[in-house]
Nucleic acid binder design. Sequence first.
DNA 1: TATTGTTATACTCTATAACTATA
DNA 2: TATAGTTATAGAGTATAACAATA
Lengths: 157, 157
Amino acid sequence: MRWTVRSQPLKNACDIWYGELSEQLGYVLKRAQLKVFENFLRCMASLQLTPAQFSVLLLVEKNPGRNQTEIASTLGILRPNFVAMLDNLESRDLCARIRSTNDRRSHILVLTDKGKAVLARAKKLVATKHEARLNDLLGQANREALIGMLAKIANEF
Amino acid sequence: MRWTVRSQPLKNACDIWYGELSEQLGYVLKRAQLKVFENFLRCMASLQLTPAQFSVLLLVEKNPGRNQTEIASTLGILRPNFVAMLDNLESRDLCARIRSTNDRRSHILVLTDKGKAVLARAKKLVATKHEARLNDLLGQANREALIGMLAKIANEF
DNA sequence: TATTGTTATACTCTATAACTATA
DNA sequence: TATAGTTATAGAGTATAACAATA
């Protein structure tokens, strides 16, 4: 897990011109994403949760009893890559794999009590430190508009 | 270079609930970024340019005569990682390294004639296929608002 | 035969240390 | 000594093939 993230400026120290670059959707999108992940990691430093791990915990809490394939594919994580992620979360006693009785090939996923407690604390940190920062920067209405447009791009582009 | 990009749905086939995830800035930002890069690669398939390579060509065109360190750091690329990128662009005769006469340690970067021609074609493809797609999806005003908010996040978050 | 979780593996990105040639 | 470009290398993230257990 990387706890330092490099983020470079859109405005630089020396006098280099960005030109069309500052209008390129992909460029500003990527830069913004790096900044947001960087801020997320700082906010979550006390809980040692990455954005990906947080998304897994959120989804397992909302959909207890689903198996690895279902959770992984919903998050766009390939099953082979999900194994080490779960090993990590399980070793920290945040979630558990339970052999399904219906289909003994499947591992049902659930949050442990500690996992639920950590997720609750994580949600509070995200709301008060991370998302609040975005509200300060853009205002409530713009924040909602931004999320809406990004979701539309993610779904329909 | 990877020319296939996996992009997963925000809306999935089976009945798994996203819950707070669909409101998480980082999540929708990352998903949108993957979709946009995927679309960019498809639009640029004929020119075989990645988003990163396109940004290098744009910046070198706008700032001819700058050295590797200046271009790389402006784009948030670490100098060691910039070497292979330039090797690639130079081997395709899109840009050239020129030993500076002032400081013989520096490599001045310029676009070749072919590089200028390819970049001109790339800009047209981006404008007509890629950015136009975003206009269709969001409308001109929303598109500009989105870019503005993303730039603000990239600069100030 | 098909699917779940897993292992092994490979490729891209990103990051740091250290070398060389110049300054 | 300090800096520019480079090499080597290591760690994430992401991708595919194939295996064991189970259906």
